[in-house]
Structures are given as structure tokens and as C-alpha cells.
Nucleic acid binder design. Structure first.
Length: 885
RNA sequence: GGGCGGGUAGCUCAGUUGGGAGAGCGCCGGCCUUACAAGCCGGAGGUCACAGGUUCAAGCCCUGUUCCGCCUACCA
């Protein structure tokens, strides 16, 4: 016991520490390698090893933990595979910064020493995020924790690389790629973030070689003109027909450029003439390819102009832009400058402006892989939930481009390719070759580039399970049951796992993909360090406890909608946790021993009703979790626990509990035990800590709640069937109590004043029900007396309330304010008329009667009958009141 | 340029084959009733963005308009 039952408020801190340690000690998160059990598996989206837990992780892992804990309660053998990602660029940046503080840099250190330094950093700080996930309650199988740079996973990476290369699906070549000068590496197209920037469109005159005027070209990046190797016009553009075989002179460089014709050129844009810079623009590169133009690289990998830039050599690319404009202006070749808003690519890691650069890189040929990945979703082998993301997935897969996978950094999987220094032979192999297969020389140099981090995470669902070995783990747990992830990495990660999983395993990596939303701040803005609106999950956990936080996330995780997070919301659910704590405290005061034998025949109405409700609540929770409707499950539990279990059931059974002893008390205690027991289990996936704490204090339980049976799977549970009779009778009783309370509230009668109530009804079954449960009505509406009689003389000094089939008179002798009662009744009648109006209109419509389905018509007719009766009764009481005033 | 999501109570949002507009918070009134004042009881509050259409019936389906957000794209 780590929290005192006498505490009026739940204190999460010790409870959380205590039970998490207990679960780990007992090995309760461990998956069992036994293929006879029903298996359920999830691989964690591996957080960056440099990462700290943010709201996105918190949501993502809470949802996964809810699913895993739920499936365990349902009896599944669950594998939740944890691990971290080596995050090449990000981690290298972190360690480089650390080196900088020590006055060193990686080049001084050398590659080997630098890699050692990164590993050292990883050993020291790399488990931070894992520990934070534990604070969140994550029930991962920690003993299987993986890291993308582990020996096993690295072998999988090599195997995949070599295989794809041999299959012709990986190639090396000189192409335009996105170059980040800060990170000093190539980036995949996906890793470039586009942003609209207010820039300028510069119109530059390129004089015709023959001296007759000039062609005017427009550009947003004038510095690239230094590398121009042609001017292109559309073949049909009559303005340039006379330029047949003419050339222009490239200003500043005095280089003659051919005028070529290419359909790519948009006649309508600018002057219809396009400068072509094959080394620094992807489209120009393609044009250059078509027309066999030379490529001149004028911007170097360091962001400075190369020797090819002539007198501009050594200038920074942006300084060069200014210098070029000035020089052009001086020569009178700058036609004009217009303001121009256009999209500019930035590095997703460091936000530096990306430069398209000609470079030798490695690529994955994605088309053949994507086709199968599309089919798998098409035919439902993998379901994407919510379905709306299917379109996005298809859209990207259908337009997929080859994937640049080489990175010019040091931290990562070095590409297993070697070049023979003697003959230039390229060798791709699992292990470093001893000699060149072509010339038998042994001077072989390994490719210095490493692979894109996403290349290794694309293998995550099977590399973590031991592939390329044929392990039992793979056999039992692949394909995984579901992948839970945010939409922001749908392409980066999900799509690539699909491609790799299908290609290498012959089977999709996951049956379901559940795509959740983003966590934003309370104004709906994206949380970011620069906006200063980041809420730290650990701060929230410290302040409000993990269970409140998790429940908040689940309660707001509606499909397709972002979550706006604020402390106020978490605070609200902390109240809920506290409510549960106190309800349990109350129950435990009365439960002294195991009460799990219930004789259903002897149950009271409230007992039967709460068991019936519990039955539908457990079905609803199961249904909701089976369909990833986390917010529905949370709402059902919240409403049941607070408003049905606490507000009605516990209040209703208090008199029974305060009795000395007897069969009634015995069976109520048994029901109370079961309802508490089952509710804790239903709640456990969302609130693992408080439920375990209460479970451990509940007499008659053994072991961890993690091993308990879900109510609907539990043979012994008394909440196995709905009880419509109890539901309907309880409905009548609560309606009567609410009716009396309403009178009390509206007439401002103090709760301390006991009331006298007369109920008139001609329905003998209603009479019987009321008589049978008169104590409940008396207690919960605080009555001095309750009389049930056939309709007859109406008590004079009384306020009225109507329930279906009966009229309630609250005697207010001496205190009734007839005018106030009249107003109250008028208000009631008005409310009723607003309901009745559309119902009458419907029934007066012959088309409705004829065309609507029978049951619908009957339902409306029945409603009309009920409303009419209530209205009639209220009206007669109003008339009577009016006579008395 | 293309695509997606959203507009429902003061705020934040649920609302799954079309058939009774809901919750939480906030607000108003009354209560320290022996689990809980982090509580209990009662109450007020909505032209479901706008305009058409389909239907006996529309918050939900169709068309258009408008506002907000996001993703995506090689117009220099």
C-alpha cells in the first residue's frame, strides 16, 4: 500500500513510482514467445535518441498503451516493441554542439573518434526519453528495447541495401538534390519544408549575339545565372521564331549561350524566355538532359561561389546575389525588379534555405515498391484509420519520386559500397571485400556517405524482431496488429515501412494504421520552442498525475481532429480521478471481505440496474476501443462512473449499507464489489496507476489488475446480461426523484426541509413499483411522507410535477407561492409545446404517415401521446392554481 | 495550382447506415446532506457558417458561396 486510504484526495506520485516498479519486477510487460497464444503486437514509433518527451509522444504512446493494456485484459499475448532512432542529422548536430563548447569540432577529431563520441553521448543521455515514457506508464516490453544502430538492426540495413542494389532498385548517379549548407548534406525531397517568402523577380537582358536587342529572362535567384548554359523558349512562341540558330551572350560571364526550344517553357510567364541552369535547378537539369547541355556548378557545397563563378568566387550565395544585381545594373542589363512571393525550400532540421545542387548520390527506385504498397491498402491488407488518410497516402504513393538516401554526415549506417582505387570498380557487399573482383587489387575505399535515418526506420517492424534471421518473434508477431502514429510522418515513415515490409517480408508490416492528430496549444497553434507555447508533459504529470493526463489525451483524441491542450482540461480530469478515488474509498469502507458471490434473485432494484448499466458500458468500451474511438470509450466511462455509479447507485444504496446486517445488505455489498472491480478493469487501460492502487486494496483480488479478466470475458461476472425491466423501473424512480428535486430547486426550498409528497396514478404497475421502492424515493428526495393513490381530489397547496403515467404533488402547505408555481408550470408547458409542435406537424402530414417506415411513425405517435398527456395534466394544474390565486 | 479537414451553447468540442440537438468547462440559484466543496442538488443558454437542392423527414446526403486551418506542387 503506497497511498493511505484515509487520504481524502488521491496523491499520485508515490503510487505511480511504486506500481510501475512492481509491474517491471513482475515482468508483466513481457511478450511470450509462444505461437499457440493469440498475439497482438505494436512497434513503437521510435523517438529520436536525442529527444525529450513532448506532447506528440505523450499522445502517441498513451494511445498505444491503452490498446496494449486493453488487449492484455482481453487475454492477448501482447508485444509492444520499444526502441529509439539514431536520428543521424539531429544527433550529429547535438554532439557537434557539445564539441563546440569544448572548443573542438568533428574534423579535428576525425570520423572514427567522432563516432565514438556519439556513442558515448548515447550511453550517457540516450535513455532519457525511455525513462520519460515510463513516467507516462508505457507498458513496453523493455527487455527487448532496440536501437536503429544496434548490430542486429545494422545488419538488416546492410542486407536490405545489398539486396535492393542487386535487384537494381538502388542506384548511384549525378542528379539535382536538395543541399543544406548548414548540415552539409543532401536531403530527400520530403525533408524540405516549403514556405512562401516575399522575394523579387529580377528581369535580366541577355543580348543577342548579333547585337540586335536582347532576350529578357526572369529569375528569383540571379546568382545562378553565372551557371547558365542556355536560354529556352517554347517551340510555338512566335516572338522568338526569328531567333532561329541565334545565340545570346551571358552577361557578366561573356559566354555565348544557345537558344533552345523546349515545351516545358510557359509562354505566358514573364517574357516567355527561360534561363537554364542545369546544375542548380531540377527543371533546368531535365531540360539540360534533353538538350545535352553542360552543367556548370557555381555554388559550392559550402554555400560559397565556386571558381566557375569567375570574379564572384568565394562570395556567399546571398552576397553574390546582391553583387550580381549591382553588376548587371551597372552594365544596364537589369530590366526591372518586381516584388514576388514564391515558395522557398528550407531544411527541416535547421531551417536553412535549401539549394538545389548537382551532386552524386544514392537513390532508391521507388515506383516498383510503391505499386505493391498501394495495392496492399487497396485490397484492405492494411487498413488506414480514419479512412480520410487513404487519399493522402494514395496521392503521395502515386506521385512518388526516387528517394535520395545518401547523407554526407558521419553518424549513421555507412553505405556498404567500396570503390577500387586501381580500376574504379564499384563493389556493394554485406562485408568489406578483401580485394577487387575485377582487378584483384586490395586498395578499396568505402563510400563515406551514410544512409538516411528513415532508411533504417523503414525496416523497424521486422528488423526489431530479428530479421534477416527467421526468428520465432517474427513468426508470432509479424505482421503487427496496428501502427499508431501521427499524420506528419505518414510519408516519411509509414509509406516507407509499407514498401520495405512488403518487399522483404512478403507481407504488410501492419494490419491497421491508426493515424492520430496533432497536439496543439489551447489557441490551436502548433506548439514550438520559438513560439514559447510548449507545454511539457512531465510538468503536467508532476502537477496533475499521469492518470489525469492520460485520460485527458484519450478523451480528446477524436478521430480527425487536433487536440487543444491546456492545463485547465487536465485539471478537470484530475477531479475525475479524485472522484474515482473517493468512490472507491467509500466502497472500501464497507467491503471487508471477498464479495464475489451474488445471488441475482435477491437483488434490489438499484443493484439490478447498475449491473445492467455495467453490462452495456463494458460492451460500449470494448466496441469503442476495437474501432479506435478513444474519446467515445473515455466519455462512456466518465459518464457511467460519475453520473450513474456515484450520483445514483452509491446514493441509492447508502441506506442499505448503513443497515446492521441481513441478506439485502449482503447482496448489495456483493454487487458493489463487482461493479467496483469491473469498473477498475474497464478504466485500467486509461488510468493504470490509480486503478492498480485501488485494486490492490480491494479485498478478494489477487495479483496485478493487469492480469485481470475483462468483464465481458469473465464467466463469474454478474453483469453478463442487460436487464430492461430494472432499467425501466429505475427510470421511473429517478424521474420521480428528479421531479421533486426540481420543485425544491425552483421553489427555493432548503434541502433541510422534509417534504410531503402524493403521487397519483391509475396505472397499478406504476403504483406497485413506487410502493416497492418508496424508501429510495423518500431518501433521495428527502421526504417526510410519500402517499401513492389513484387519481382523485388534488391537494390544494401543492406544486406539481409530471412523469409518464403519474402526477407528483409536492405539498407546500403554508409555504407555497401560487404565483411562482403558476410561472413554473407555464414554463414547463412552454417547454413541452416546443417539443410537441414538430411532432404534431409530422403527424398532420399525410406524406409522413404514408411514406415513413411503420416503426418510425409509431414512435412519433407514441411520443405525441406522452407529450399530450403531460401537457394536459400540467394545464389542469395550472388552471387550478390560477383559480386559487 | 491540386487535395484534405473544419465552421454545432459564452469557450472547447462530441454527434458512425438521414427519424428525439448533447457533453465538459464557464454562468445563475440553493446546499459544509457522515466518499468526495477537486463536492452535491436544481437551472438558464443553440436559425447546427450562408444559399439552394434531394427527401415524408437534413447538423448528417448533393450543388454553390464564404471564412479558418493543414498537406502537397518543378511556373522561372
Amino acid at each position: 500500500m503506497s497511498s493511505n486510504l484515509l487520504d481524502k484526495a488521491y496523491e499520485p506520485h508515490n503510487v505511480e513510482r511504486h506500481w510501475y516498479a512492481y509491474w517491471e519486477d513482475q515482468d508483466l510487460f513481457a511478450a511470450i514467445e509462444d505461437n499457440k497464444l493469440k498475439s497482438y503486437s505494436i512497434v513503437i514509433p521510435p523517438p529520436n535518441v536525442t529527444g525529450v518527451l513532448h506532447m506528440g509522444h505523450a499522445l502517441n504512446n498513451t494511445l498505444q498503451d491503452v490498446l496494449c493494456r486493453y488487449r492484455r485484459l482481453r487475454g492477448d499475448n501482447v508485444l509492444w516493441m520499444p526502441g529509439t532512432d539514431h536520428a543521424g542529422i539531429a544527433t550529429q548536430n547535438v554532439v557537434e554542439k557539445q564539441l563546440a563548447l569544448e572548443g573542438a569540432d568533428r574534423h579535428q577529431l576525425g570520423r572514427e573518434k567522432f563516432i565514438e563520441a556519439v556513442w558515448a553521448w548515447k550511453e550517457k543521455f540516450g535513455s532519457a526519453i525511455i525513462n520519460q515514457l515510463k513516467r507516462l506508464g508505457a507498458s513496453c516490453d523493455w527487455k527487448r528495447e532496440r536501437f536503429t544502430m544496434d548490430a542486429g538492426l545494422s545488419r538488416a540495413v546492410r542486407k536490405v541495401f545489398v539486396t535492393l542494389y542487386e535487384q537494381g532498385l538502388i542506384y548511384r548517379g549525378d542528379y539535382i538534390i536538395n543541399w543544406c549548407h548548414r548540415c552539409h548534406t543532401a536531403l530527400a525531397d520530403l525533408e524540405v519544408e516549403h514556405e512562401d517568402i516575399d522575394g523579387h523577380l529580377y528581369y535580366i537582358r541577355y543580348p543577342f549575339e548579333n547585337g540586335n536587342g536582347a532576350a529578357v529572362v526572369a529569375t528569383t535567384r540571379p546568382e545562378t545565372m553565372l551557371g547558365d548554359t542556355a536560354v529556352a523558349v517554347h517551340p510555338d512562341d512566335s516572338r522568338y521564331h526569328h531567333t532561329e540558330s541565334e545565340r545570346v551572350i551571358l552577361p557578366l560571364m561573356n559566354r555565348p549561350l544557345p537558344i533552345i526550344k523546349d515545351k516545358y517553357v510557359d509562354v505566358a510567364f514573364g517574357t516567355g524566355a527561360l534561363k537554364v541552369t542545369p546544375a542548380h535547378d531540377p527543371n533546368d537539369f531535365e531540360i539540360g538532359d534533353r538538350h545535352a547541355l553542360p552543367s556548370i556548378k557555381v555554388i559550392g557545397d559550402d554555400g560559397r561561389m565556386t571558381a566557375e563563378a569567375g570574379k564572384f568566387e568565394g562570395l556567399d550565395r546571398f552576397e553574390c546575389r546582391k553583387a550580381v544585381i549591382e553588376a548587371l545594373d551597372q552594365e544596364g542589363l537589369l530590366e526591372k525588379i518586381e516584388p514576388y512571393r514564391h515558395s522557398v525550400g528550407h531544411c527541416y532540421r535547421c531551417k536553412t534555405v535549401i539549394e538545389p545542387n548537382l551532386s552524386r548520390q544514392w537513390f532508391v527506385r521507388t515506383k516498383p515498391l510503391a505499386e505493391k504498397a498501394i495495392t496492399a491498402v487497396d485490397n484492405g491488407n492494411t487498413r488506414i484509420i480514419p479512412e480520410t488518410w487513404k487519399n493522402t497516402y494514395y496521392e503521395w504513393m502515386n506521385n512518388i519520386k526516387d528517394w535520395c538516401i545518401s547523407r554526407q554526415i558521419w553518424w549513421g549506417h555507412q553505405i556498404p559500397a567500396w570503390t577500387c582505387e586501381a580500376c574504379g570498380q564499384l563493389i556493394v557487399a554485406m562485408e568489406a571485400p578483401k580485394e577487387c573482383p575485377a582487378c584483384r587489387q586490395s586498395k578499396l575505399v568505402q563510400e563515406s556517405d551514410v544512409l538516411d535515418t528513415w532508411f533504417s526506420s523503414a525496416l523497424w517492424p521486422f528488423s526489431t524482431m530479428g530479421w534477416p534471421e527467421k526468428t520465432p518473434l517474427l513468426k508470432i508477431f509479424y505482421p503487427t496488429s496496428v501502427l499508431v502514429t501521427g499524420f506528419d510522418i505518414l510519408f516519411f515513415w509509414v509509406a516507407r515501412m509499407m514498401m520495405m515490409g512488403i518487399h522483404f517480408m512478403g507481407e504488410v508490416p501492419f494490419k491497421d494504421v491508426y493515424v492520430h492528430a496533432l497536439v496543439r496549444d489551447e489557441d490551436g497553434k502548433k506548439m514550438s520552442k520559438s513560439s514559447g507555447n510548449v507545454i511539457d508533459p512531465l510538468t503536467i504529470i508532476e502537477k496533475y498525475g499521469t492518470d489525469s493526463f492520460r485520460f485527458t489525451l484519450a478523451a480528446f483524441a477524436a478521430q480527425g481532429r487536433d487536440i487543444k491542450m491546456s492545463e485547465k482540461r487536465v485539471e478537470g480530469y484530475r477531479h475525475f480521478v479524485n472522484k474515482i478515488w473517493n468512490a472507491a474509498r467509500f466502497a472500501l469502507m464497507h467491503l471487508e471481505k471477498d464479495r464475489n458471490r451474488v445471488n441475482l434473485g435477491q437483488l434490489g432494484l438499484a443493484d439490478r440496474w447498475i449491473l445492467s448499466r455495467l453490462h452495456s458500458v463494458s460492451s460500449a468500451v470494448a466496441e469503442a476501443l476495437d474501432t479506435y474511438r478513444f474519446n467515445d470509450a473515455a466519455a462512456v466511462l466518465y459518464n457511467f462512473i460519475w453520473h450513474e455509479f456515484c450520483d445514483w447507485y452509491l446514493e441509492a444504496i447508502k441506506p442499505v449499507l448503513y443497515q446492521k446486517k441481513g441478506p439485502e445488505k449482503e447482496s448489495t455489498l456483493a454487487v458493489l464489489w463487482w461493479v467496483l472491480r469491473d469498473t477498475l478493469v474497464l478504466l485500467h487501460p486509461f488510468m493504470p496507476f490509480v486503478t492498480e492502487e485501488i485494486w490492490q486494496q480491494l479485498p478478494g483480488t489477487s495479483g496485478s489488475i493487469m492480469k485481470a479478466a475483462f468483464p465481458s470475458d469473465n464467466k463469474d461476472s454478474p453483469s453478463k446480461v442487460p436487464d430492461p425491466e430494472a432499467a425501466s423501473k429505475m427510470g421511473l424512480i429517478t424521474a420521480i426523484i428528479t421531479g421533486v428535486r426540481n420543485v425544491r430547486g425552483e421553489m427555493h426550498i432548503a434541502p433541510s426541509q422534509m417534504l410531503k409528497v402524493i403521487i397519483q396514478t391509475e396505472d397499478s404497475s406504476i403504483q406497485e413499483t413506487i410502493e416497492a421502492h418508496r424508501e429510495m424515493i423518500i431518501n433521495l428526495s428527502r421526504l417526510r411522507s410519500l402517499a401513492v393513490e389513484a387519481p382523485g381530489a388534488k391537494p390544494a397547496a401543492a406544486a406539481t410535477s409530471i412523469v409518464d403515467g403519474a402526477m407528483i404533488f409536492v405539498s407546500l402547505e403554508g409555504i407555497i407561492d401560487f404565483e411562482k408555481e403558476g410561472q413554473r408550470l407555464e414554463k414547463e408547458i412552454n417547454k413541452l409545446m416546443n417539443e410537441l409542435d414538430p411532432v404534431r406537424k409530422k403527424l398532420n402530414n399525410a406524406n409522413f404517415i404514408n411514406k415513413a417506415p411503420g416503426p418510425v411513425v409509431e414512435k412519433v405517435k407514441d411520443k405525441q401521446r406522452r407529450l399530450e398527456e403531460r401537457r394536459r395534466k400540467l394545464q389542469s394544474n395550472l388552471d387550478r392554481i390560477k383559480q386559487l390565486t
